[in-house]
């Protein structure tokens, strides 16, 4: 499959996932957020298994702890997002969370990993902060 088609698919899947988050509230499933996420993570874990079965390379401790930290963050983030979607309109919630996360990762990259942020990056950070301020009011 070509790179462009893969990007289009990635764009659509990611977008549809966020629609799924919004659908939890729209379908009246706010009380079942835990069940939705248990099934979601369970299905994702099961789908991962065929890619690992038969692998000759065993998992390392680093794989495990990075994965566990990612899993705990993902679970907390999804729970917060799904709960927030019952209180905040989708057109505000998704740009705030997606934009805010992006800004936070860039800032952490700069502070912790000493990554360079150029002129475009600084302009992007300013635009991101301005967008969050505008959307939050």
């Amino acid at each position: 499959m070509s790179y462009r088609r893969l990007l289009l698919l990635a764009f659509l899947f990611n977008g549809l996932l966020m629609i799924g988050m919004k659908a939890v509230e729209e379908l009246g499933l706010s009380r079942h957020i835990a069940l939705v996420l248990v099934v979601q993570y369970g299905v994702s874990a099961i789908l991962c298994i065929p890619g690992i079965v038969g692998s000759r390379k065993p998992a390392t401790r680093t794989d495990a702890w990075v994965g566990v930290v990612a899993g705990l963050s993902s679970a907390a983030g999804m729970t917060a997002t799904l709960t927030a979607s019952t209180m905040i309109p989708g057109y505000m919630l998704f740009p705030i969370i997606q934009g805010g996360t992006m800004l936070a990762v860039v800032i952490v990259g700069r502070v912790v990993f000493k990554e360079r942020v150029g002129a475009y990056g600084i302009a992007g950070l300013c635009a991101g902060v301005a967008s969050i301020i505008l959307l939050s009011k």
Binding site: I52, T60, G67, A70, G71, S73, M78, G109, F113
Partner: peptide
């Protein structure tokens, strides 16, 4: 934090298949 774990897994040359499995299992 999740975004930083992607950077860390890159830095430590982690096997993404295992990282994803551990991520989904711990979240589950």
């Amino acid at each position: 934090v999740l975004g930083v774990t992607y950077k860390l897994s890159d830095k430590f040359n982690c096997d993404q298949r295992y990282v994803n499995l551990f991520m989904f299992l711990s979240a589950w």
